[in-house]
């Protein structure tokens, strides 16, 4: 019995579903062009005159290019991990910030920083990823044990859970006089993304590829253990896989960039609002929109109080909250 095989055959028996939306069409091309334009804008935006000054080319390579690559990777990764969480829980209002995953990653990061102050970025990242994994498992455990009257309870509990973990972090930080650092680590910002410090983000590119490959299986697992077992999938293995994907993406992004609130929530929702629920053909759109939103927010963050910058998490927090509330009110009308 080979579970993955069984999964492939179940989806293959319904070709009309699988190929309903074509993966590539002219609209997607248009989207790619649009995002590319935004990225060009990002490359040319900044206080330093990279084209005029003598060392412009060097500065361009040290700061602008890494920053833009980081935008692409982090945006796509967080949007994807939001999507994975939504698939696994079958709940549209779930993503790393509404389930406490981000706070867990922060706690892991803090713990490593305190126990091994000299830890390398890989060490810090490992701590964040492990903590994010544990946190996500705790949340899924809760979802499995509790029957819910309303799907909206899930993010409420998740945010409370995040607050608990956040208070633990605050406590530790206060005891070790690292409260200020905590604030800096946590505020997502692309300011400090320089050559030599962001390369780890490439790991999340692998996550995006992995999501493409296993998306169908994640959907089946989201329908519950019984359904998954019934179609011959190993439920626990898929849940672990999904949680691992989320944890790695969140952990890496938290360590390199910081907190990017609501991104994983609003992107998949907006995509399915415009394109319906065909998972496979939506995936590239989720990536693109994630990149686009992060890039736009980063541009705002860079220019709004020039020559200074605000953390992109602040802008994203405001924009994300507005979009989230809009989505909620829209759902209320339909429910």
């Amino acid at each position: 019995m080979t579970p993955p095989r069984a999964a492939v055959s179940t989806t293959a028996t319904r070709p009309e579903h699988r190929f309903k939306g074509r993966l590539f069409d002219w609209k997607l091309l248009l989207g790619v062009v649009g995002v590319a334009g935004l990225l060009m804008l990002s490359l040319t935006t900044g206080v330093y005159d990279v084209f005029g000054a003598g060392d412009g080319g060097q500065m361009f390579a040290i700061t602008r290019i890494p920053r833009t690559i980081a935008l692409v990777l982090a945006g796509a990764a967080m949007a994807m991990s939001g999507l994975v969480m939504q698939l696994l829980t079958q709940n549209r209002f779930v993503e790393p910030t509404t389930t406490g995953t981000t706070e867990w990653a922060g706690l892991g990061l803090l713990t490593v920083m305190i126990i091994f102050p000299t830890a390398s970025i890989i060490g810090r990242m490992t701590g964040a990823v492990i903590a994010a994994f544990i946190g996500t498992m705790v949340f899924f455990l809760f979802l499995r044990r509790v029957s819910l009257r309303s799907s909206l309870i899930v993010p409420i509990v998740g945010i409370m859970l995040g607050a608990v973990v956040g208070s633990i972090s605050t406590f530790i930080a206060l005891q070790t006089d690292t409260l200020q650092n905590l604030g800096v680590w946590f505020a997502g910002s692309f300011t400090s993304v320089l050559r030599g410090q962001y390369e780890l983000l490439w790991i999340v590119a692998l996550i995006a590829v992995a999501v493409f490959l296993v998306a169908d299986r994640l959907t089946v697992a989201g329908l519950g253990e019984d359904v998954a077992t019934n179609v011959g999938l190993n439920y626990n293995r898929i849940m672990l896989l999904g949680t691992g994907l989320i944890a790695v993406a969140t952990g890496v992004v938290t360590v390199v960039v910081g907190n990017l609130p609501f991104l994983g929530l609003i992107v998949p929702n907006i995509v399915s609002m415009f394109r319906g629920d065909d998972l496979r053909s939506n995936l590239p759109w989720v990536c693109l929109l994630g990149i686009a939103i992060v890039t736009v927010c980063d541009l705002i963050a860079r220019t709004i109080i020039m020559p200074f910058e605000v953390p992109v998490s602040v802008i994203l927090g405001i924009v994300g909250a507005v979009v989230f509330i809009f989505l909620l009110l829209r759902q209320r009308r339909r429910a």
Binding site: S150, L152, I159, S313, I315, L316, G317, I318, A321, L329
Partner: peptide, 25 residues
């Protein structure tokens, strides 16, 4: 709807937090 009210309240809280952080900068 009660649940929507709760969630909107929480999210507004988060959004206001971001606005405050912005002003503090």
């Amino acid at each position: 709807n009660m649940q929507v009210m709760l969630l909107v309240g929480i999210i507004i809280g988060g959004g206001l937090g971001s606005v405050s952080t912005f002003m503090q900068r």
